[in-house]
Computed example of a mutant assay.
Amino acid sequence: MIQQPFGRTGWQVPLLSFGAQRIVDEHNCSEQEAIQIVNRAIDRGITYFDTAPSYSDGQSETRLGLALKGRRDEVMIATKTSDRTRDGSWRLLEGSLKRLQTDHVEEWRLHNIRTIEELDACFAQGGALQALREAQEQGIVKKLSISGHTNPQVLVEAIRRYEFDSALVALSALDHHIYSFAHEFVPLALEKGMAIIGMKVFALGKLGPWYEQALRYTLSLPISTSIVGMETMEQLEKNLAIAESFQPMSELERLEFWKEIMHLATPETLPWKAEEWGGDAWYRRAQ
């Protein structure tokens, strides 16, 4: 699989990375299956794994920790804090490390920053960013990150305030059509030397009929890698086949793809872009 620079960090990551949110009972994936899928992914060259304490009340982290026994030094782990305070974030990190059975993670990120008010809370005295910086100073966390699904301008403001090492953002072909991270955020992030990680590749399954096109679209963007959630060995193999034979999508292919899927660019299809998750109105942009 193609290996690419992870921004200015000096790390290399595979084109395809592993979103561990789905290796849980909630997605009909057993513990044994989760361990097998993760180990198969590593055997095939996937080395970057994304998780969070909020994924199925920590089950994602627990299973990832079990799967990585004896292989911790082969991979990079990114986990998150959804708390906006220093103390709350530290408690989340301590729980994450215990479940992951490790004494450090390669990345720790602010999870799903939606509004300027949330950003302000993270950056305030006693805010979550303080915990990120302290953990990095102590060597518990190697790099600092931020993620956003909703409003690219909020993340633009974030990286103007602080030099994060990476950002995890929604970069499906449908995300292109409303509050586009590809247009509004990625250019500035690249200018700053950040690693960009794509997510929401299949728009919660809505792009399933265009599976290969959807994955190729995101992988063709100027990103370091893209995480894809996988709860079965079949899904892993399908994604690996596309990534291992990857050819960038041409401009003509991209335009034809957009024409086929444009009718799906609605709040119902993109609930992370609505004012309230699953609502019927587009997110109100911060001014």
Rank of each mutant, 00 (worst) to 15 (best):
Q153E: 14
Y55G: 04
R63Y: 15
L66M: 09
R84C: 00
R133W: 00
L97Y: 00
D73R: 03
F49R: 09
I46R: 00
I46S: 00
S54Q: 10
D50Y: 15
H149S: 04
L119P: 13
A128V: 06
K69G: 00
S54N: 05
A135R: 05
Q101G: 00
D87F: 03
W90T: 03
E107Q: 07
R114D: 11
K69Y: 00
S56I: 07
I116L: 09
L93D: 10
T79Y: 13
T79R: 05
T62Q: 12
L66P: 07
Q136L: 11
L110W: 14
A121I: 15
L110H: 11
V156G: 01
G139W: 06
Q138C: 04
S60I: 09
Q153T: 08
G148I: 02
T81Y: 11
R114K: 01
Y48L: 05
S145A: 08
E137D: 09
H111R: 07
P53E: 03
D103L: 03
Q101W: 04
H149F: 02
D87G: 01
G45F: 04
L93N: 10
K143R: 15
D120G: 06
S147K: 09
I77E: 01
I116S: 03
I113K: 06
T47Y: 08
S96H: 00
H111T: 11
V75A: 07
I140S: 12
N151K: 14
A52H: 06
G88H: 00
G126E: 12
A124R: 09
H104T: 06
C122V: 14
Q101M: 01
V105E: 08
I46T: 01
T102L: 01
W90M: 08
G70H: 02
I140E: 08
